[in-house]
Design a protein around this nucleic acid. Structure first.
Lengths: 303, 303
DNA sequence: TAAAAATACTCCATAGGTATTTTAT
DNA sequence: ATAAAATACCTATGGAGTATTTTTA
């Protein structure tokens, strides 16, 4: 028959993802028979089946599995072709899909989004806030162009650019404001409230305190820094928050911030993107805007 | 407009290669207007021109240049999808495009092609005989599936598999058969006839004799080993030939073969293919047939 | 029997062909 | 003036939709 088409590969990829002809067709904004026909055509042109059809679910064959891996790469490369064109005339145009982790987003973005138009007027930013692991997945899948995370992520295929370093500060109930700054070791004696599992900030805090990673400890986990701060304000314990969050969170409850006796824990904030992205040059410019935003916030948090 | 299609990328690639709408259209087996339309559509969908049109020739724009690089990779990856399918049912089917360098082809292929059907009946082999540099280019372009060459080639992106090592023997006029085997150093005193530039065998011979690579020396270069052997038979000088060539070439003229005093020069024969080829597993099997053929020939040449 | 994929068929968008015009040297 | 690309216009292929049938747990 005829040659493989990108359309077939896109439909195949969708079906491989969702494992259901009807829903895959939806996600491609076509009808189920249209998708069925294209998949079948791809299979016959290859001369070998890609899916096992069951009445309850559709699964990739062994061959289909290997095929899907390569197809993903091809589709990503084709998407990057369009990205290239967006940079052809010197300035970045269209929509930039940016991911940010939850412990950075609410504090950094207001300043970042205020600064960005100064250098990139008209650039359309779409934001996604979720945890690092998911952001990495979406970068690899081509659903994101770049992400702002805590470094290092050490993911093969991703470039990381370090932007600034910020301290993690201890937040205690305001009533304890007069006590001396504890050492990291003394933290283990306090009720340390942390974000739920999956947040890199949780892991960084635990590792600073030399505590094991393990699963949640009952009642001590929050789903956002704001919640944790409220819990601290209510006298339930203490927590760590990033310096950047101080201006916002420090005023929302009766809490008091302090450093540690000895060295301060810190995290490095940076941007990551696919090695292969054609947007690299422009992402670097945007990274420097992020850096400026971060430094501005830290200066005001400290001053 | 609509999305990018593979068809557009194929046409674009053809035009980027040949730089001429009419001839590119020919190479795609379509009419010139059909190609023009697709190229233009690609350009408008990208929003930026890919070619500078002149009345005498068509050139890639700077952006087009970068674009072409990526497109090549995509098209190769898509072609490899089809290759994958050829291996899906366990055995390799269809046509295998194999390159061989000229100093191996005539001696190895008869035996190889006789052995191959024993393990790969029905496999359709298409052969291309040219020098290493060109074979590497055609491998990278996806015009070849594998090549038999002298190792190492050390090309990034290509896998090499060493198969056997063979000596290079000195061929002298039969009249000199009684003289003692010379040392490599003594070769510089003889009229050494070699293949023209570009043949790796020439370079290997020169390097063994500690001679500079330089360009041709008048009258001392031949275009094939057979020619060299005839020249040696006519008393014009001496030459080096691969051991494998002895059974054929040793009888075609009044010449005498000998080794060297001290160590024997040798070359390593192997197969190369793209790292990314899905045929790797099967190519490895074919490589072992090549190896068997080589060893058979060497055994009969020595025995 | 019920959910889901495959078929049947119709329609329209679009790729391609031929003939012709425009363009740039 | 000429080679070559673009345009015009027509045809035919094929992708998509709706309606329907087939499949199998």
């Amino acid at each position: 028959m005829d040659n493989i088409t990108l359309r077939q590969l896109r439909y195949f990829d969708a079906l491989a993802r969702v494992g259901h002809f009807g829903r895959a067709a939806d996600s491609c904004a076509i009808s189920q028979p249209a998708l069925s026909v294209q998949i079948k055509e791809l299979e016959t042109s290859l001369g070998t089946p890609l899916f096992e059809r069951g009445p309850r679910h559709v699964r990739l064959t062994g061959f289909g599995e290997a095929f899907a891996q390569r197809v993903k790469g091809i589709l990503r490369a084709v998407d990057e072709l369009s990205d290239m064109a967006r940079t052809a005339e010197g300035r970045l145009t269209g929509r930039l899909r940016l991911g940010v982790i939850p412990t950075i987003a609410p504090y950094l973005l207001p300043t970042f989004l205020r600064l960005l138009p100064e250098t990139h007027a008209g650039l359309d930013i779409s934001l996604r806030e979720t945890m690092t692991a998911r952001l990495i997945g979406e970068l690899n899948d081509g659903q994101l162009d770049a992400a702002i995370v805590a470094l290092p992520v050490s993911e093969p295929g991703l470039t990381e650019v370090a932007l600034f370093e910020e301290n993690m500060v201890l937040l205690r109930p305001a009533s304890e404001a007069d006590r001396p700054a504890p050492s990291p070791a003394e933290l283990t004696g306090l009720r340390l409230l942390l974000l739920e599992e999956g947040h890199c900030f949780r892991d960084q805090a635990l590792s600073f305190c030399n505590l094991p990673g393990g699963p949640a400890r009952d009642g001590l986990d929050g789903t956002s820094l704001s919640t944790l701060v409220q819990m601290v304000g209510a006298g339930m314990g203490v927590t760590l928050i990033p310096e950047m969050a101080l201006p916002v969170e420090g005023r929302s409850a009766p809490v008091s911030a302090t450093g540690f006796a000895g060295g301060q824990p810190s995290r490095r904030v940076g941007m990551i993107w696919r090695d292969s992205t054609p947007l690299a040059e422009h992402l670097m410019q945007i990274a420097s805007v992020v850096e400026q935003a971060g430094r501005d916030i830290l200066r005001s948090a400290r001053g």
